[in-house]
Design a protein around this nucleic acid. Structure first.
Ligand SMILES: [Mn+2]
Ligand SMILES: [Mn+2]
Ligand SMILES: [Zn+2]
Ligand SMILES: [Zn+2]
Lengths: 138, 138
DNA sequence: TACACAAATGCAACATTGTTGCATAATATT
DNA sequence: AATATTATGCAACAATGTTGCATTTGTGTA
């Protein structure tokens, strides 16, 4: 059942450990984004905070998850569904954060628009974060 | 010379205090965004950290400055140039954050595109944050 | 200008969040 | 099974953010 989890870890040359399996499982179970605090709470068996920080960092580097900017000093993370790889993220979809319940969604089917910048600015990545009321909170 | 500063404060029913004058001055002098830490450093005369937090919060509420989301857990702030007012921000321009020098720019002339969301999502605000290399770092 | 009221500041104490080094434990390789 | 490699947990620390309260400062009025 967790072959998908193990596969993902191995494909990314990561050793298969309890914390990595559990944290990756959380992301797979969830269709919304997770903050560090969410993981700390939901992981059940408690891993050290430091381990969670390091695991998230590793997953981002490997292109397993991507980070989502926020205006409230709490970055969230979500699974990469596209073909992201080490150092190369291609998650160009829009994110939605509910003002009420703070749930953050990856809107995989809403792609980020092209933005034309003034002369001199070199675009690396475009993040679009929409806030408002989600389906449940309307 | 600082009549503009005093005017802005009075127009927003804020009493004119040293810290508010100084912090607002910093924003007026600067064309880029400022994080809490920047203000603490640049304010010269040292105001208590708490005062800076509260001043930033007040300025955001009054529509004097707006906050800019980031993917690195450090929200930045910049002057509102549009007609923002208490509880009603209208800063619908794109922001640019340099990966190299971390400077954050308000691209006042680049307006955020319209984003069409799936059924059920109610849009309140759209934030577009572009990262890459700025003019100085190219 | 002096006074009284209202509001902002500074301080202390605390909470939360994030970072680093290192010994130990777990995993992968042979 | 033995070894080499890597991740984990712990401790100690740094940075960031929050709250209550006494004191100071600013504002409107006498
Ligand atoms: Mn996403
Ligand atoms: Mn701006
Ligand atoms: Zn919601
Ligand atoms: Zn730069």
């Amino acid at each position: 059942m967790d072959t998908r989890i193990i596969d993902t870890l191995k494909r990314n040359q990561l050793s298969v450990t309890d914390s990595r399996k559990k944290i990756l499982e959380l992301f797979l179970d969830q269709q919304t984004a997770l903050a560090h605090a969410d993981i700390e709470l939901q992981s059940g068996e408690d891993f050290d905070r430091v381990t969670i920080y390091r695991t998230l960092q590793t997953f981002v580097e490997k292109g397993i998850i991507h980070s989502i900017p926020s205006a409230d000093n709490s970055v969230r993370y979500a699974l990469c569904k596209d073909a992201c790889s080490e150092g190369h993220h291609h998650d160009n979809h829009v994110h939605f954060m509910c003002d009420t319940c703070l749930t953050t969604y990856c809107l995989d089917h809403v792609t980020v628009p092209t933005v034309v910048l003034p002369e001199g600015f070199q675009v690396n990545q475009v993040d679009v974060v929409v806030s408002g009321k989600c389906l449940k909170c309307s």
